Computed example of a mutant assay.
Amino acid sequence: MSSPRKVVELFYDVVSPYSWLAFEVLCRYRNVWNIELKFKPAYLGGVMHGSGNRPPGVVPNKFLYMNQDLKRLSEYFVIPLSPPSNPFEAMFEKGSLNAMRFVTAVAEKDKEEHVLVERVSRELWKRIWSTDQDITQPASFTEAGLKAGLSTNEVEEILNLAKSQPIKDKLKSVTQEALDYQCFGFPCIVCHMNGKAEVFFGSDRFELMAHCIGEKWVGPQPVKPTAKM
């Protein structure tokens, strides 16, 4: 008899490049580890404010390090990550509130399969962290949605839904849920097993995470196990 699947929740915001790294690695590992991966789109600005954290852009040395760090991580994780021409503006001045409301609306329409929220999130990450494009305007959400496989009518419906109070409340609720786990930034990964929640911050804790959930970390690009005859 196989053991029950462990639930792994990923709290993320598409404005966070480190969240993209964690997102892609967990997507690669969900069929390697015995996990049920749940996407939890939230608002990084709300978590930073609620936890009293400071963004790297206000600490010059930290900001300079981040740019170099992302170049190394892009190569290691094999993810086309390239900082935008003005990272501070893209991450902190323009913000991601409307983008995460759009992702939250997709998640609400995609509660069962989680395929569309995965695709839409990836397309938005690509826009800001690969091709240096906007993620704040409705036209940007439309383009990301269409590339993710949504129809024109579906995108229009989700754009309208994203403006609704229930979606705004849902985003606030999930953001507060992250804060309740004492989250102070993204990605925040919560592993549930045996009635206990283990919380991990960042995209560099996979080896420790694997140890805690009884799985094995084999690098950023695992080979899917072959079926036994």
Rank of each mutant, 00 (worst) to 15 (best):
V59Y: 03
M100D: 09
E118H: 04
S74V: 08
F141H: 10
S2H: 02
P41T: 13
C27G: 10
Y76L: 15
L208N: 00
V8H: 07
V47T: 09
P222T: 03
S19A: 14
C212W: 04
W125M: 08
V223W: 03
E113C: 11
G219T: 13
R30W: 00
R127P: 07
I167Q: 11
G185K: 00
A105S: 05
A197P: 06
G185D: 00
L10T: 02
E177I: 03
C191I: 11
V223N: 07
D204F: 02
E113W: 04
S203E: 11
M1N: 15
P220W: 13
E89M: 15
W125C: 10
C188V: 05
P220H: 09
R5G: 12
C191F: 06
C27S: 13
S2T: 06
D13K: 03
M100P: 09
S74A: 14
V199C: 11
S164H: 00
L44W: 01
N153L: 02
V8P: 10
M229W: 05
P60V: 02
E9S: 12
K62G: 04
L179M: 08
S82F: 10
V115K: 07
P17E: 02
F201G: 05
K109S: 11
W33Y: 12
T142V: 03
L179C: 06
L150S: 11
S74D: 05
R119K: 15
S51L: 01
Y18Q: 01
H192I: 13
F184L: 00
K6L: 10
L37V: 10
E108I: 09
G219S: 13
G214R: 04
L37M: 06
K163L: 04
L10E: 01
I189K: 03
V32M: 08
L97K: 02
M1P: 15
D204P: 05
E89F: 14
V223D: 06
T175Y: 08
D69S: 15
Y43V: 01
L116D: 11
Q165V: 04
N31A: 15
H211Y: 09
A105T: 03
N160S: 11
S151N: 02
G195F: 04
S121E: 09
K172H: 13
R28Q: 04
F63T: 08
M193Y: 12
F11L: 05
V47K: 01
V115T: 06
Y43Q: 01
N194I: 02
H114I: 02
I213C: 14
A22R: 05
I167T: 14
P225S: 13
L159R: 06
E112Y: 00
I79S: 11
S51T: 01
E154P: 05
S3Q: 11
K38G: 07
N31P: 13
F92G: 00
N194R: 07
M48G: 01
D204S: 08
V106R: 11
D110W: 08
W33Q: 12
Y181M: 06
